[in-house]
């Protein structure tokens, strides 16, 4: 039975991807893309990677989908003229690439190093039970530090491009004609979303979850509030900007302060490793939520493009 489900899921993925690439209307492509994201979340569950399923659903399909839909909203016409005409050569190359990849999968030497055992052996000293959180925030924490920096840079560039806009253009002119149904629904849902985010963060240390998934859910909540015309970001502009960098600031501060104690960079003291990781994750969740929300909020768009 499993094989049938897997093959259905795989073919479904390919169908969605085909839908994304070959539908003429961009809006239909984006919708198919979101469907692809959900199917991919299912695939990660089949590959015994629940963390990834959560992340894919929240960030991959959810947030990217929202960004794309928001971008599509501002395009005047959705379909575009025919693609380039020379298609035979690229087609052959891509098919060759796919075949080569699949062929190479079974020409695989026996793996001499087994990392999962190493992770399992040193899991107790990492301070958390869940191996993925251990890898993310202890064994390869330097990668996560750089990853947060990448997110921050994206937010900074968004701010840079937006500050370039004339201040008038950014503040949306229409007064708060809040849609009552959406507002009511959102005002009740927001606390629940916050609760779920905190739970996912908390659960991260011993079961699938963690900073990124929590942050993504928080961002989804903030986006929902923004769509329901609760413009929270106007009240604390500078506080919001501090919030973006706060997570990275704390992570870097912790990473460097341990060095004063003589330990190498990013080494948590053994006894308190778990607490350190939880503290960092909490701050990261808050920061990632704000960054992902500001990426949505900063994107330019209100101004009508002039035709040149």
């Amino acid at each position: 039975m499993q094989f049938a489900f897997d093959s259905m899921l795989g073919l479904g993925l390919l169908a969605c991807a085909a839908g994304v690439f070959w539908s003429r209307d961009l809006f239909r492509s984006v919708v198919m893309f979101i469907a692809f994201g959900l199917l991919l979340a299912l695939t990660w569950v089949r590959l015994e990677a629940p963390d990834l399923a959560l992340a894919e659903a929240a960030i991959g399909a959810g947030l990217t989908g929202v960004l794309l839909l928001d971008a599509i909203g501002h395009l005047r016409q959705h379909n575009e003229h025919s693609p380039r005409n020379h298609w035979l050569l690229p087609l052959l190359c891509c098919i060759a690439l796919a075949l080569l990849l699949i062929l190479s999968f079974n020409a695989r030497p026996e793996a001499s190093i087994s990392l999962p055992q190493l992770v399992a052996e040193s899991l107790p000293e990492s301070g958390v039970e869940h191996p993925i959180t251990a890898v993310l925030l202890n064994f390869r924490s330097y990668d996560t530090l750089l990853e947060i920096a990448v997110l921050l840079v994206a937010a900074v560039v968004a701010m840079a491009l937006n500050d370039g806009l004339a201040a008038a253009a950014r503040t949306s002119t229409e007064q708060s004609n809040r849609d009552p149904v959406l507002a009511g629904f959102t005002s009740r849902l927001a606390p629940v979303i916050l609760l779920v985010a905190i739970y996912v963060l908390w659960a991260g240390s011993y079961m699938p979850g963690g900073a990124f998934q929590g942050g993504a859910i928080l961002a989804a909540g903030l986006v929902l509030l923004k769509l329901a015309d609760f413009h929270i970001e106007r009240y604390a502009e500078s506080l919001l900007r501090l919030g973006l960098a706060f997570g990275f600031l704390v992570f870097l501060a912790v990473a460097t302060s341990v060095m004063i104690g003589g330990r190498p960079f990013l080494t948590y003291p053994e006894a308190f490793a778990g607490q350190f990781i939880l503290f960092i994750e909490a701050v990261l969740t808050f920061s990632i939520g704000l960054i992902l929300f500001s990426l949505f909020n900063q994107s330019p768009g209100q101004e009508v493009p002039h035709d040149n």
Binding site: A49, D51, L52, A55, E56, I59, G60, L63, T64, L115, P116, V119, P131, I132, A134, V135, L136, F139, R140, D143, T144, E147, V150, L151, F212, I288, L292
Partner: peptide, 15 residues
Amino acid sequence: PVPQALVLTGIVVAV
């Protein structure tokens, strides 16, 4: 768990 952690980082970088 290691490739899964890498993919998590990859997804965030991709977004």
